[in-house]
Design a protein around this nucleic acid. Structure first.
Lengths: 236, 236
DNA sequence: CGATTTTTTAATGTATACAAGTTGTATTTT
DNA sequence: AAAATACAACTTGTATACATTAAAAAATCG
């Protein structure tokens, strides 16, 4: 394994991305240039270039004369998220069904194998990263440069929302994840068959499952209440 | 007017953006760090940070050990463009109708005034930039961080496509532009009234107008041909 | 004693020098 | 003469030193 400057730069990039997706670096955290530059054997110049790139992709926020911060996530953005996600992902999957190559389909199957392995024996972080990888491949398949920027931005908060709400190991969440895994399998089948309509429908189903799970977590008592209208409230 | 490093940095950013949107810097052009750094009184370090940022926003492509390039535009991307644009812009305008503030509505009206002025007496570049500004404000109004990355990416190529296909001063294009201006007025009205459905419909109409205009330009003979099926062909 | 100003400290932003890589050209070899 | 190779000029990537700005601490004044 090489250890030149370029390798260290990509290592830093991947480390930051994974840390942010898994919430090891929490939203709003400050990043210390000196510390990171020391830890990865890079001077501040290439480090700051990595910051700028990650900021462009939505991982970080840069403020002049202040330290870089992990992009915030407020509960008001949940609404924006579940409005945009099904729409963008529906289009992405539709295009994936149109354009996926044999190689990409194999990559997707590998990603799904890894996801299943993470479900059986992995940590929450493993699950989040494996799931992220699966969806990332579908994005590559679509090949639409105009949709990918938003799609990749969505995937960042998808992972972070997952880490927030799928953490406790309850039965309902376990059921939910196995359902998600089944949907992944169906997505693969639809893409392999080139069935655009099915792919688009599966996208909607997949995000509805996520949304339902989160609503269940945010307002668990709503189930017992007699048809009560339960607005989104900020959890502890 | 200040002339500190920060000002020169934003000046460079704006210069590059405008140059790329108006095709003064053509797709695929190489950028010379030394020359730009000299021209704007900046050292290469902040200049390269600007490059990284613009690459993140979709203006530039960075390749290791090679010069930065203006993002390419192939004719195969027209299809991707007109698939993504109505969808994303429909959502953006719907949200704009929901969330626009008084201040933003005033900004939008100003942008539309500037656009009309550019139609009367401005150059093609003026029109493209003024139109870009109008749509940019609608993006700000939506306030949805998940849709904005793709929307802003779309606006880049919207301006460039406009510069490509709206250049010759024919009657049909003149008619088309005044129609676009009328649609802008209707968009403002829908947003001001908070009419989401109307806003979404106008988004679709607006992009259909663009698409029709381009098809007219790409295959002008199709009109005379008796029901001929005219596939997109590469113009000279 | 509290508020405000000054001083100190530490971080970010920029410039420059140097290292590594790429491209074009000329020379050599077949 | 064509291809391959070696060299030179130039471009990009990185490190470090310096400048600038913000935050923190200390000192002064009301």
């Amino acid at each position: 394994m090489k250890d030149d400057a370029k390798s260290r730069k990509t290592a830093l990039t991947e480390h930051l991305k994974a840390s942010i997706l898994t919430l090891r670096l929490q939203p709003g955290s400050d990043l210390d240039e000196a510390h990171l530059s020391d830890a990865f054997g890079l001077s501040r110049t290439p480090l700051r270039e990595v910051f700028r790139q990650l900021a462009g992709e939505g991982y970080l926020d840069l403020r002049t004369n202040r330290s870089a911060r992990v992009t915030e996530m407020s509960y008001t953005t949940l609404r924006d998220f579940f409005l945009a996600a099904p729409m963008v992902y529906g289009a992405i999957l539709q295009l994936a069904a149109q354009n996926a190559t044999r190689t990409q389909i194999d990559e997707l199957k590998e990603a799904q194998q890894a996801f299943k392995a993470a479900l059986r024996s992995g940590s929450g972080e493993d699950r989040a990263l494996a799931n992220n990888r699966f969806h990332d491949v579908t994005g590559e398949m679509s090949g639409n440069v105009y949709l990918l920027p938003s799609f990749n931005r969505l995937l960042i908060d998808h992972a972070r929302i997952g880490m927030t709400f799928y953490r406790p190991q309850t039965t309902s969440i376990s059921d939910n994840l196995s359902m998600a895994s089944q949907q992944h399998d169906a997505i693969i089948a639809a893409i392999e068959a080139g069935d655009e309509a099915a792919a688009a429908q599966l996208a909607e189903d997949h995000w509805n499952l996520s949304r339902d799970q989160i609503e269940l977590f945010v307002m668990p008592d709503a189930l017992d209440a007699p048809m009560g209208i339960a607005p989104l409230s900020k959890p502890a």
